[in-house]
Design a protein around this nucleic acid. Structure first.
Lengths: 251, 251
DNA sequence: TCTTCTTGAATGGCATACCATTTTTGAAGA
DNA sequence: TCTTCAAAAATGGTATGCCATTCAAGAAGA
């Protein structure tokens, strides 16, 4: 990875000669660092609870500490990391209560988005969600959990996007990001897959009928299933500690 | 102001001799700069749409550009300023559509908070809200718009706080901050003061009865009144430009 | 052997310096 | 007088260095 990034850096420095498009505003380093950190957190490259050492991570990412620190402030505001004065940053590790709070809030946001979507969506928008739904069914048929997870996320994102409320879209994205890791893990061991599929059928039906009230109710409850699965997973993890936790105990 | 801040700075540097309490974690500069900027934006010291010159503002605040820039990243994430690559930061200036989106979202958040509050609030919590309500009535009786505004904000904040959902509290605060300026101005010219009071009576009644459904409905609609007043104010401003805008035209 | 204190290494916080891009200004030409 | 272009000033972006605080290791004492 380090080599690729070095090449990328070199490419960036070469560019100024002939900018392909004057419209390209040249994204600041801070922003791209923030994106990469988000990915690293989502993919557990930076595991929850782990301390982020500025100098080490800056070197890994081939940037100086300044943009890294600015990116960390952003992630802290987004709730993905926590900052302790003079003690550095650690990747946020929400406890069950926080996860439940986040899921409930997300449910409320999705319910609102669903209502608006029913009122404002174009036929094209509805067709796109329908298409994603079929893609998800395809992943389900193949028992491809990863594809299922991603398509599922896309569907919810698409519904929110068609709400047309920019602040809602923004806020939903933020809350969702805080839950990404948890939901990803939950998806991997989901024992209620068929239930989720059924709920999605209901979601699509309400949406195509433009029944905002019904859709809102379904969406708000939909994450209840997620919570049931997540809390079950957490319980299981508590009873039977993972290898990682056991290894940590050995030190 | 510069002198006070210089003194404050000196005080900060003197402190390390004998820390009064070891429990005081010494707030980072970035955080306090962010707070001050938030205040400056809320109070129109930094007017909406205005460009923020890093070097100038840093000097005013008696800090270097580093913590200032970190603070700006935070405010940008919060939606209070907008960052344009290589072109700097400007104070966010939401247009009517964005304001309406924000108000609707805030309404949904408050409705959710109200539901939870009805379910979870202690008698003590309810008593506190009731007390704030009477304080607000006092301000209304005195036609003290500023006191009314602040108490009003406190009431809504208190209800959300008793919801017990940390993410909701956080998110609500953020959306509310984005609307602070607009609502402050709106309050100053509100022609529907009596309507707002009536709605607050209803809010208190539903809360004391712990009727979550009713409270949610009222709170969600409550901001509709705010929107009516805000949009009326914006319309008026468009018809009859303010002195500030006129002065700007002269240049 | 365990506890406590001291000392040094490591880390984060902040300021400063330099570079690239953008904006402004003013001079030349139409 | 207006437009265009070029040079310079200003501004934001990034890297680096120094300082204060925290953390870790080891020595001294119980």
């Amino acid at each position: 990875m380090t080599e690729d990034e070095a090449l990328e850096l070199a490419a960036r420095k070469r560019e100024p000669a002939v900018p392909p498009e004057a419209a390209a505003p040249a994204e600041p380093l801070t922003k791209s660092v923030a994106s990469r950190l988000r990915d690293m957190i989502a993919q557990d490259v930076l595991p929850a609870g782990e301390r982020i050492r500025e100098r080490a991570v800056a070197e890994t990412l081939q940037v100086s500490r300044t943009p890294l620190r600015e990116a960390l402030k952003i992630l802290a505001t987004e709730g993905l990391v926590e900052l302790y004065p003079h003690r550095g940053a650690v990747v946020a590790d929400p406890d069950p209560a926080e996860i439940q709070d986040l899921l409930q809030l997300l449910g409320v946001l999705e319910a609102f988005g669903g209502e608006l979507a029913c009122a404002r969506a174009s036929e094209q928008d509805l067709a796109e969600v329908q298409a994603l739904h079929y893609e998800m069914l395809a992943a389900y048929a193949r028992k491809d959990r990863l594809a299922y997870f991603k398509t599922n996320q896309q569907i919810h994102k698409a519904i929110i996007a068609t709400s047309g409320n920019a602040s809602l879209i923004e806020t939903h994205g933020r809350i969702n990001a805080q839950l990404y890791r948890v939901r990803y893990r939950s998806n991997a061991r989901n024992t209620r897959w068929d239930v989720a599929i059924k709920e999605h059928e209901d979601i699509l039906e309400a949406l195509s009928k433009r029944d905002g009230t019904a859709l809102a109710a379904i969406l708000r409850g939909h994450l209840g299933s997620t919570w049931a699965n997540v809390s079950e997973g957490l319980q299981q993890a508590a009873d039977q500690p993972s290898r990682a936790a056991a290894a940590a105990d050995e030190t």
